[in-house]
Amino acid sequence: MHARADTIAHPRIARAYRNLLLDAGFHHVELEVHTAIFTDATMQPLLAGHAEAAHQIGAVSAEQAEAWVSEQARRAQNGRLMVAVPMFLAAATR
Rank of each mutant, 00 (worst) to 15 (best):
A91V: 02
L46D: 07
Q72W: 13
M82G: 04
L47V: 08
F88M: 08
M82C: 12
V83T: 15
R94W: 05
E66Q: 11
L31N: 05
D40N: 14
A24K: 05
F88T: 09
A73M: 10
W68T: 14
M87Q: 08
A24P: 03
R80H: 14
S70M: 10
A76P: 13
L21V: 02
N19Q: 15
E30Y: 01
D40G: 13
M1K: 03
R80T: 15
F88I: 08
T35P: 00
Q77P: 07
M82P: 01
V29S: 02
Q72I: 14
E32P: 00
S70Y: 14
L89T: 06
Q64S: 12
E52D: 11
R12N: 04
I57L: 15
V29M: 02
E32K: 01
Q64N: 15
L89R: 07
T93C: 03
A36N: 04
I8V: 10
L81I: 10
E63D: 13
L20G: 08
A67T: 15
R94S: 05
L31Y: 04
A41F: 11
V69Q: 15
H28W: 11
H50M: 09
F26A: 07
V33Q: 07
A62W: 15
W68K: 12
F88Q: 05
E30D: 07
A62C: 11
M1E: 05
L47Q: 01
A76I: 14
M1D: 05
A73N: 11
A41P: 11
E66K: 10
A62P: 10
A3E: 07
A24F: 03
E63M: 11
T42C: 06
A73W: 13
E30Q: 08
A73L: 14
Q64L: 11
Q44V: 05
L20F: 06
E66P: 13
Q64G: 12
S61T: 13
A24R: 07
Y17S: 06
Q77T: 14
H50E: 05
I37V: 13
T39D: 09
M43I: 00
